[in-house]
């Protein structure tokens, strides 16, 4: 293995038209160099995300410039900006619609922890409700930081990726911090009634056939 997890055989010039590599590594090598981000840009970080895509910072250098706005075509969810009560089910739905294998970057303080918005409406970190791979600090992070996050994610893909996505299996319980639902005395809690029709909750979602919940 060379640096960055690229199979050795690929790095050299292939002689006689042969390369020798493990399938897992080959797949990861392809995947990491062609990440297709789904820009879930809700707020200020979205502007820096746009700046990252624009000419000065040019995310294309890392093979991740193909922003697609349809989750079906993406494998990297970049959550840029705060996610609030009404938006969270939408985000979960988009995450569920993305095909495997997929990764998630939580960009900025608000997405990672709620940031300065410790209020009634803002979710205190998307990782409470969604698996996150890389966190980017900053409010908003500089484009360079986002580029670093993409590179870190590439490393992670190269290191852990398998062709059938075995690395994701067996992670059955949510990975984020514990829900803060217990922060209040039960008598104080208002369990918001209804089913949030206007912004469907995750467990009542129609999910892809063959997936849990279908």
């Amino acid at each position: 293995m060379a640096e960055g997890g690229i199979p050795v055989a690929i790095e050299r010039e292939p002689r006689d038209g042969f390369i020798v590599a493990k399938l897992d590594e080959l797949a990861s090598w392809c995947r990491k160099n062609s990440l297709w981000p789904m820009p879930f840009a809700t707020a200020c970080c979205g502007i820096e995300l746009m700046a990252t895509g624009a000419s000065k910072h040019d995310i294309a250098r890392f093979g991740a410039e193909a922003f697609r706005f349809s989750p079906r075509q993406c494998d990297l969810l970049i959550v840029a900006g705060r996610v609030v009560m009404k938006m969270l089910p939408v985000m979960q739905r988009i995450w569920l619609q993305m095909p495997e294998p997929k990764w998630c970057i939580s960009m900025g303080a608000c997405a990672s922890s709620g940031g300065v918005f410790d209020t009634y409406a803002v979710v205190q970190g998307i990782d409470r409700f969604l698996p996150v791979d890389v966190y980017v600090p900053g409010c908003p992070p500089r484009p360079e930081q986002l580029l670093q996050a993409v590179m870190d994610l590439q490393d992670k893909v190269a290191r852990t990726g398998t062709i059938l996505g075995r690395e994701f299996q067996g992670r059955e319980s949510p990975e984020g911090p514990r829900s803060l639902r217990g922060e209040l005395d039960p008598s104080r809690q208002i369990v918001a009634p209804g089913n949030f029709r206007s912004s469907t909750r995750a467990w009542s979602l129609p999910t892809v056939a063959g997936r849990p919940g279908a």
């Binding site: 900006g81 939408v90 918005f117 009634y120 803002v122």
Partner: peptide
């Protein structure tokens, strides 16, 4: 249909002082 980014700015404005709220 809006409110997908309602984060309670004005409520925060009642809890932060004049210099803090600028952030």
């Amino acid at each position: 249909d809006i409110g997908f980014l309602h984060s309670g700015f004005e409520k925060l404005g009642e809890h932060l002082d004049f210099n803090q709220y600028v952030t």
